[in-house]
Amino acid sequence: MSIAILLAYLIASILFVLGIKMMNKTKSARQGNRLSALGMLIAIVATLLQIEVISLVEIFGCIVLGSAIGLYYANKVEMTKMPEMVALFNGFGGLASFAVALSDFFLRTEVNMESIELVTVISIIVSVFIGGVTFTGSIVAFLKLNGNISGSPITFKGQHPLNLILFISFLAAATFTVIDQSDPILIIALIVISLILGILTVIPIGGADMPVVISLLNSYSGMAACATGFILNNNVLIVAGSLVGASGIILTQIMCKAMNRSLINVLLGGFGQSVSAA
């Protein structure tokens, strides 16, 4: 990576920090958002500059397609449907980190036939897990707010033990993946479990608590981007990812407080509500 690109990443990181800071106040919020968008543009252009000509056409095609979809829905959506839209976009971001991690994994194991070093393989597993949970969790949050599925908490007996069992199986599959990277069954198990866990953790939460959940999932997608940064050894991904991850948690807490709820209470949503209803 040339020094110019590294400097561009540094400038982008500074703009993200300033942007978030300015978004704390009503007066400067809009300008803050623009500064952070400028940071993103700088990061993208800097990355594009190191891309080889062979893949340029596909890359521009993907960017044009993504921009068209993003612009269309962002302008079309009604103001009252904003939280749903944010949930959906956030889910896409999580899925993108998830796909980048898998892309890297398959390239290294199946094409280069190399054994991936410990830090990288752990980062891939973390990125797949958080990205997968963010994706399906955000989609469930979107469907709940949009009224496609009932906004009331969906609970069933043994939900928490099931989540625990799935999480433990994930850890087991992750351990085996670290030991034996050549077996695709293991990575498929990791993918499936993380996608299921995303659904299971959000369905028991009631529709009224969804904004808090979306804020938490937003924090997760930052962490997924951060893990992707560790896979690719990329500073700007780590800075932006951990900024969003950390500030997202604080914002989630503030939102909980504004609703007079505790975060634990929201996360065990179905649980808490059935108690208060009784």
Partner: peptide, 23 residues
């Protein structure tokens, strides 16, 4: 500002676009 801030930081988490470009 809660929702705009959430939405704005969500856009920043799209930084994974850099990873996607490299991928």
């Amino acid at each position: 500002l809660h929702t705009p801030l959430m939405s704005g930081s969500n856009a920043i988490s799209g930084i994974t676009i850099v990873g996607a470009l490299l991928a």
